[in-house]
Amino acid sequence: MLPIREGFIVAGILFTLGVVGVLVRRNLLFVLMSIEIMLNAAGLAFVIAGTRWGQPDGQVMFLFILAMAAAEVSVGLGLVLELYHQFKTLDTDAISRMKG
């Protein structure tokens, strides 16, 4: 008899930590890592909800989130490398002035 509510609370705390990371950190790498944490927390909530109803659909959604996270990270890290070559920094403030 696992506690469903506590599982959701853990997912909520992890998601909140991810939001704080995106808001506070200026380093692009840390922003990407925080986004990973948020996606992970959302997937955790999906799996817990699937367990609540005894269905595999939560895990299916987790798989979709996983595929999305993999695509997002590959494109995001490619952009990080490109921006570092252009600006020699990962500070999001320095990159906010880019044009077309």
Binding site: M1, L2, P3, I4, R5, F8, G50, T51, R52, G54, Q55, P56, D57, Q59, V60, L63
Partner: peptide
């Protein structure tokens, strides 16, 4: 109401069938 539920393990077979 958020009851503590009996965990029924959903293995790769169930996930694959749904997927």
């Amino acid at each position: 109401v958020a009851p503590a539920v009996q965990v029924v393990s959903q293995g790769p077979v169930e996930v694959g069938m749904a997927l």
